[in-house]
């Protein structure tokens, strides 16, 4: 049984149809790469999964829990809980400028902890866990020595690595990336892509929207090509990149290479 299931998802802004009948599935631990030209709806799809937009129709589920169904309405509190299944790394990093690297990573877990009813002892232990997790994350994105820097003191590539660590600190089931390297100078994309690549493996399920085709082919288990709000083609990287069936996919791939 698939881990993530997206069924008949539709989104329109007023009269503009941005997503039409989006269906796909993803296994736990797999990496899905979404490619497609500008305006094809990739960002909107990630935003719907992260509850930043509300899809007009359809549903999606993670594990055996239906997270979203357009027929239902959800309270803010429910949405907050549901969206923690997903994490999102933005194109423009969106780090919190007034906090250090370490504080950016620990802010959300600590606020979450505050809301829980715990004894002083439990609280202390949880705090220690949060700090320990931050250490591990800083290590894994290679920024241990920058933990007390503020975002404005970091390069774009470093900022994006912090953003990745920050998203991971909430232990999302599925981590989404929206063009994580598009705002970076070309010489900085490598370090970010390497970090994403290194996250692959084990149980970590990821959805990556990217224009870096070489990276896409390397990291992906599944590839979706989107055009004008629909999934034009879906398959393994070898199928989509090596032997595209759709005329549009061929044209797109010819264009970017």
């Amino acid at each position: 049984m698939s881990f993530l299931k997206v069924n008949h998802l539709e989104k329109h802004f007023g009269p503009t149809r941005v997503l039409e009948d989006i269906n796909f599935e993803l296994e736990k631990g797999q990496v899905l790469v979404i490619i497609g030209s500008s305006g094809s709806g990739k960002t909107t799809l990630l935003r719907c999964l992260n509850f930043l937009e509300t899809a007009n129709q359809g549903s999606f589920s993670v594990g055996d829990e239906i997270l979203f169904d357009a027929e239902q309405t959800y309270t803010d509190k429910q949405i907050r809980e549901k969206r923690l299944k997903f994490g999102l790394v933005f194109q423009s990093f969106n780090l919190f400028p007034q906090y250090t690297v370490r504080q950016n990573i620990t802010l959300a877990p600590k606020l979450m902890l505050k809301e829980k009813q715990l004894t002083a002892e439990q609280r202390k232990e949880s705090l220690a866990q949060i700090e320990q997790k931050a250490d591990e994350l800083l290590e894994s994105v290679g920024l241990k020595d920058r933990q007390d820097f503020y975002p404005c003191q970091l390069s774009g590539g470093q900022q994006q690595r912090v953003a990745i660590a920050r998203a991971l600190a909430m232990s999302p089931e599925i981590l989404c990336f929206d063009e994580p390297t598009s705002a970076l100078d070309p010489e900085l994309t490598g370090e970010v892509l390497r970090v994403i690549q290194s996250l692959k493996g084990g149980d970590r399920t990821m959805i990556v929207v990217t224009h870096e085709m070489g990276f896409a082919r390397d990291v992906a288990d599944r590839v979706i090509f989107m055009a004008d709000g629909v999934i034009e083609e879906e398959g393994t990287p070898d199928e989509v990149f090596g032997n595209p069936k759709s005329e549009k996919t061929r044209a797109f791939l010819a264009g970017v290479h």
């Binding site: 992260n50 907050r80 969206r83 994490g87 999102l88 423009s92 969106n94 959300a108 606020l111």
Partner: peptide, 17 residues
Amino acid sequence: SKGQYEAGQVLGLTKTQ
């Protein structure tokens, strides 16, 4: 920027937080 709100939202923070 809207991104600051959205970054907080996807991390599960409340509007007040």
